[in-house]
Design a protein around this nucleic acid. Sequence first.
DNA 1: ATTAAGATGCGCT
DNA 2: GCGCATCTTAATA
Length: 203
Amino acid sequence: MKLKKSFFTHDVVTEVARSLIGKKLCTQVNNEYSAGIIVETEAYSEVERACHAFNRRKTKRTETLFMEGGISYVYLCYGIHKLFNVVTNKSGVAEAVLVRAIEPVEGLDIMMERRGLATKDRQLTSGPGKLTQALGIDMEHDKQDLTQDTVWLEKGLIVKDDTIERSARIGVRYAEEDALLPWRFSIKNNSWVSSGDNKYNFK
DNA sequence: ATTAAGATGCGCT
DNA sequence: GCGCATCTTAATA
């Protein structure tokens, strides 16, 4: 059962990031279905420096973030990787949740094919650039309505608070003091969570 | 017009 | 653990 619009328009982005843990992210691309359980997310908001739309900065790229919650924000990172975000809050407020890792549950074969891998280990989806490749998410999926049937979210599993870990976000050292915000959510001891390589976090 | 840097991943050591 | 690929975006001139 797909998540409704009201799930996404909630006005506290960290709460949506928490709620997305355990939800199922599904795609139907080129007639191939694949899906995974979200195990790691990060919240981003116009009020802090790690966000592309910090200080309400409006550009061609960030216009997606200012739209009403319930659509995707896909952008190219380091010229190579496509990162998938869920836009939240009402129109005019730039906030989103980055999906950093999933645990594959359906369409494992097509995921392996898209990733060019011969194994079903954590290499498949344990990182923000990996899961988009595995699910077939591309730039053309920017601004997509997540309540429709190309990229969408489903109910998934209940994940208790005491099994969720909060930590600083990955790769945002340029954000100065905002790099310290505990806006990263992940399932404790889940092997599909990204490596947690914090080398660029505090410096 | 030019340029610096980035919400990463991979391969090599 | 380290270096690099790769290219768009946005700031500066």
